[in-house]
Design a protein around this nucleic acid. Structure first.
Lengths: 106, 106
DNA sequence: CTAATATTCAACCAGATGGTTGACTATGTC
DNA sequence: GACATAGTCAACCATCTGGTTGAATATTAG
């Protein structure tokens, strides 16, 4: 995955509304209006958020008449999980503590 | 983990320079100057990036005289992995294909 | 004491972001 | 045809971002 694509994925998910949209779409496809109904912001704002998610490849849109059907495309999430997993070794609290101890020593 | 903390973590990692800093610190602690040496931007710019990472809890700083020792704190990465793992079900390409098929049907 | 080193702070700039409102396009319904 | 519905586009605004340069602060070295 290109660095720019990872940029877009991380950036897209750095907004709580957009993460909530992802969560919503995990429950099944929806139209723009359906998604917007959940949020206290304007439909236009939701439309913009969807464009960001779409550009990051997290949402796919299919036009059906005047309605746009949105579905979750989770492949970028897998790339994020893959990136973070490179640092799994550091997640362990005990390892963190050991590192701290070793640094204290020198 | 609070939504705001997740916001900060995702946002911090949406920049390629900051991801490279994380990668650098995974190789061991370093001073600000050491980190900055790798990048074609000013030391000041790196200093700002470090502040962003620190605010997201991804970097811890210990002052030792005039030097600041930086170390990776990967706990926020674990939270990100946890968040993305909620959508593991959707990562599977075959499932994506199935979903597409089912939608085509109605 | 002086000079060099490590780092931050402050001001500035261009461009992105997240929100708004108002107008527009396209499709469906009566 | 007339009206309602689904959605975008465009302009605007305040704030954030990533970078710069120049000055300030602290610590170490000569």
């Amino acid at each position: 995955m290109s660095a720019a694509a990872l940029d877009r994925s991380f950036a897209a998910l750095s907004d709580p509304t957009r993460r909530a949209i992802v969560s919503r779409l995990a429950g099944g496809p929806a139209r723009v209006t359906d998604v917007a109904a959940r949020f206290p912001i304007s439909l236009n704002a939701v439309s913009k958020h969807l464009k960001v998610l779409e550009r990051a490849g997290l949402v796919r849109r299919r036009r059906a008449g005047r309605e746009h059907h949105l579905e979750l495309r989770a492949a970028p999430l897998r790339e994020i999980a893959r990136w973070t997993s490179r640092y799994e070794r550091f997640w362990n609290e005990k390892l963190d503590a050991l590192d701290a101890f070793l640094e204290e020593e020198d």
